[in-house]
Design a protein around this nucleic acid. Structure first.
Lengths: 163, 163
DNA sequence: GAATAGGTACTCGGATAATGCCTGTCCGAGTCTAGTGGG
DNA sequence: CCCACTAGACTCGGACAGGCATTATCCGAGTACCTATTC
C-alpha cells in the first residue's frame, strides 16, 4: 500500500500557491521548476485539484493556477482525496459470500455488514478525521513559525518571471 | 492507494484458523477452497504471516497452518503489517530540499522534519492505533455474537477431510 | 508378531511469469497579447 | 490619433507509451506416514 507520489507534490504546491496569493496565477511549469519536478506530470496533478475545485485554472498567456478558496477552507484531506480518489484503501470483496458447497453454513445473514470490513472502515475513518482536522492555513502557519521568510521569498521567486 | 487484496484473505483465514483450534493444522488448499481463492497465491500470504510469527507452518502429511499465538495476542494491525509491510503509506521524498537556484532560500533549516510529512505521519499513526486496538479475539467475539454457529461449523468443515 | 528400512504421497517454500496501475510524455484546443493596417 | 483585425505565442487539457509493484503460478526440498521385509 503506497500512496501516490503526487500527493506530496500537490500539498507543497498548494502551500506555494497560498503564499503566491490569489491575485496572480502561477504556471505549472514554474511550480515544477521550484522542486525540479516533471512539468507535464505535475500539470496532471494540478488538473485533478482543479476538478475538485481546490485550485482554479486560467488558460492563455498570464494564465496558470491559483487557489480557488481560502486556505482556511481547504483541508489536507481535500487535497489527498483529490489526488487519490474517494475510494477507501481497503476494499471489501465480501469473500464470506463466496462459500461454495457449504453455502450459508455459517448462519451469518448477509444483511449484516462484514465485520472485518467494519474494522478496516473505522481505521480509515480515523485516518480521514485526522487529515480533515488540519487545514492548509494550519499547515501554512506551522511552517511560517519555523521559517518566517518563507512566504515573501516563495512568492517572490514564483512571480519574478512576471512583468 | 489501494491495499493488497491479500489483507482481506489473511484476516478471514486467521479467524478460520482460530475457530479450527491449535490442535489440528489446516492446509492452504483447504483454506483456499473455503472461499474459492487461488491456492498458490493464498499460500504466499500465509507464508508472510508465518514469517511474522502469526501462524506456524508444518510441512508434510497432516501438515498445514495454525495460529502461533492466542487470538488475544494477535492484533489486526499485526496481520495487516505482515502482508503490507512496515513502510507507511506516505513516503516523504523531502522535495523541499530539491530547490535549485534559490537554494535554501526559505530559511528552513533542514534539521527540522518536514511539516507535511509530520501531518501525514500523524494520520498514519491514528490509523495504526485503531487497528492495533482490536485483537483477533475481539473480532472473533463480534462475529460469534451475530453468528453463534460459525465456530463449530467452520471448524467442522475445515477439518472434515481429516481422518 | 514386532521392528526397521524404504518408498510414497503430501505439504510448505521460494523462484518464476503475467497483469494492471502509477509514472511520465506528448500534442491539440482555447485564449490572451501584441502588432499592424485602416479609418 | 484611435480602433479593429489578424497573427502569434503561451497555457491548460486530455489522449498516448513505459516501468514497476501486485497478482498469479509452478516446481523443488523436506517430512510424516504407510508398507513390506526381516529377525
Amino acid at each position: 500500500m503506497r500512496m501516490n507520489e503526487g500527493v506530496e507534490w500537490a500539498l507543497h504546491c498548494c502551500l506555494n500557491l497560498a503564499w503566491a496569493g490569489p491575485e496572480e496565477a502561477v504556471t505549472a511549469a514554474r511550480l515544477a521548476a521550484f522542486y525540479e519536478l516533471p512539468t507535464a506530470y505535475l500539470n496532471k496533478q494540478l488538473q485533478a485539484l482543479a476538478r475538485e475545485g481546490i485550485v482554479s485554472s486560467t488558460p492563455g498567456p498570464r494564465g496558470g493556477f491559483r487557489l480557488a478558496r481560502l486556505p482556511e477552507e481547504i483541508t489536507v484531506l481535500d487535497v489527498v482525496t483529490a489526488i487519490e480518489g474517494r475510494d477507501p484503501a481497503f476494499q471489501c470483496t465480501d469473500i464470506r459470500k463466496r462459500t461454495p458447497g457449504h453455502g450459508r453454513m455459517l448462519g451469518d445473514d448477509f444483511r449484516q455488514p462484514c465485520l472485518v470490513h467494519q474494522t478496516m472502515s473505522r481505521a480509515d475513518l480515523a485516518w480521514r478525521r485526522e487529515l480533515a482536522g488540519q487545514t492548509l492555513a494550519d499547515l501554512k502557519a506551522s511552517i511560517e513559525a519555523v521559517a518566517p521568510q518563507a512566504p515573501d521569498r516563495t512568492r517572490g521567486w514564483l512571480l519574478e518571471a512576471r512583468a
